[in-house]
Amino acid sequence: MKNKNVIEVENLSKLFGDFAAVNNISFQVKAGEIFGFLGANGAGKTTAMKMLIGISSPTSGKATVAGFDVYKEAESIKKNIGYMSQKFALYDDLTVKENITFFGGIYGLSKKQIDQKRCELVEELGLKEVTNSLVASLPLGWKQKLAFSVSLLHEPKIVFLDEPTGGVDPITRRQFWEMIYKAAHNGTTIFVTTHYMDEAEYCDRVSIMVNGKIEALDTPKKLKEHYKTDTMNDVFLKLARG
């Protein structure tokens, strides 16, 4: 199972008119890997990710996600992935329980499965007292942990996280990463974009995008050695400034 590629991207491009938002990128992600997808704002991270999750079609190139082709089998991809966006992704005016039921439902889980998942999840996150409270009343950190758990409800092979820790305090971020490790340990592949370079250190491998191209791709350790710096932050700055 390990070492098998769950995401394969070859010369993938996305053009908006003459502008290449994503310019000929290639990479592979292995099963169970935590893959960091880094880049400055506007570098093309989100566009690239949207092509992989099947809501934007590529201009050219090849890509498969969980073994399915992004052009022809977007529907099958959707069943096998989880997604959590930078905008917080649960319904504020629904309770914790209703959110779990709704998202479980649209992924086709049975009532029994949903009930079981909900009990586990509520127990694990310590949300027992607030199961019937509106999500709006929870602190941001709790919401984000809940949103992550909800994106894992249907046990996807790969989960895509688009800047999941934006605006969260360091402690919650730490806890959030513990959840990510746990999910990865259970065999879920994590594809995560982030702005925080300290988070990049937590990833198994990171790619750094600059102006639509992948400029570097390796383990954080090797990248630091290669660019002769102590932190990922410096690696990033060196690349982004060209």
Partner: peptide, 8 residues
């Protein structure tokens, strides 16, 4: 976005 990424 979440809804569009779902199988719906």
């Amino acid at each position: 976005e979440i809804l569009l990424v779902s199988p719906l």
